[in-house]
Amino acid sequence: MGTRQPLDLFAIGTMTIFCMVMASQQVMLKAVAEDLAPVFQIALRSGIAAALLIGLILVQRHRMPLAPENRIPALLIGVLFTLEFLLVGEALNKTSAGHATVFLYTSPIFAAIGLHLKIPNERMSRLQWLGILLAFVGIVLAFLGGDSTATLSRDVLWGDFLALLAGAAWGLTTVVVRATGLSALPARQTLLYQLVVAFVLLSLWAYMTGQADVNPTPEAMGSLAFHGIVVSFIAFLVWFWLLTKYKASQLGILSFMTPVFGVLLGNWLLSERIEANFIIGSGLIIGGILLVSSHGWLSKRRERRAGKPA
């Protein structure tokens, strides 16, 4: 495997577009929710993306062997991926797209705690624990925001909590991948397992809960095409390609533009109100996540500086 290069203007520009695309998905899910329920739209987009990914794998003639010991972890990440987006879909029925995006992107916090407990060489430093504390305070402050109407506040609070649980499911998915033989598999293979399981389980959930009705308006069909082709297929392939060229730690730090864009796009396109408490809390959450996620990069920089001759 070749040496990853530091970020350049192309990578920064590509990551900015990538983060805007990823941030817009909750906004678009919310915008067409009356015509196509978020949970069912996520199910359908997973099916579209899985079909496109299978086609790409067949064209490129990639083999996808799965060792017996990896079968249960493969099913588990599919279930966790499904749970993540089930929670996101239900959260969007209660809270704003901006709130859902910020709380979903708390996943690195949960991943860091899980890896700390599961893998000895993933123990967190004091700086990372400080980041965890900072993010926790931010979550509390963000939850204190909301509408002045009591009923609406309870709904928003419940939606925020579901989005936070979605972030925990995403973080746990990372732990399962890192702690099992799935970490040695190509990224598109693990993505395919997640997409197929999500398509099946979320479709069943949508039918059982009466959320499978579709009003095929141009906006709903456009959103579905955008999610299935751009978000779940092209954007993920671009992300995996960037990981083969550039340093993952630096890309990871840039990815935290996504919740910022999510809040701004929700305010601009859906006229979602941004509460002062939520702004402060979101800032603390993102700051805490950056402390947790950038520890490895900062440590390597310190090591390089210490190793330079005087």
Rank of each mutant, 00 (worst) to 15 (best):
L130V: 06
L164R: 05
V137A: 13
L144F: 13
V156W: 11
L117E: 02
A142H: 04
V140L: 08
A163N: 00
S148M: 10
G138K: 08
V137E: 06
W129K: 05
L133V: 03
L162N: 05
S125A: 12
T149W: 06
K118C: 10
T151A: 14
A142Y: 06
W129G: 09
L162V: 08
S153I: 07
R123E: 08
G146D: 06
A142E: 07
T149V: 12
L152M: 11
G131V: 01
P120I: 10
L157R: 00
G159Y: 07
L164G: 05
D155H: 07
I139K: 02
L164M: 14
A142M: 06
L134H: 02
N121K: 01
N121G: 10
R126E: 01
I132E: 01
Q128R: 07
T149R: 11
L157N: 05
I132S: 01
W129S: 10
L134R: 00
L144T: 15
E122G: 11
P120Y: 10
W129I: 09
T149I: 07
L133E: 03
G145D: 04
I119Y: 14
V137S: 09
L127E: 13
D147F: 07
N121F: 08
W158R: 05
K118F: 03
D155V: 08
G146N: 04
W129C: 04
V140R: 05
V140E: 09
P120T: 13
R123S: 15
L141D: 09
G146S: 10
S125H: 10
V140M: 11
A142I: 03
R126K: 04
S148A: 13
R154A: 10
F143T: 12
F136I: 12
L133M: 08
A142S: 13
I119P: 08
I119V: 13
Q128L: 02
L127V: 10
V156M: 15
Q128I: 00
L127T: 08
A135V: 02
L141T: 12
G131P: 03
L133W: 09
L157H: 08
R126Q: 03
G138Y: 05
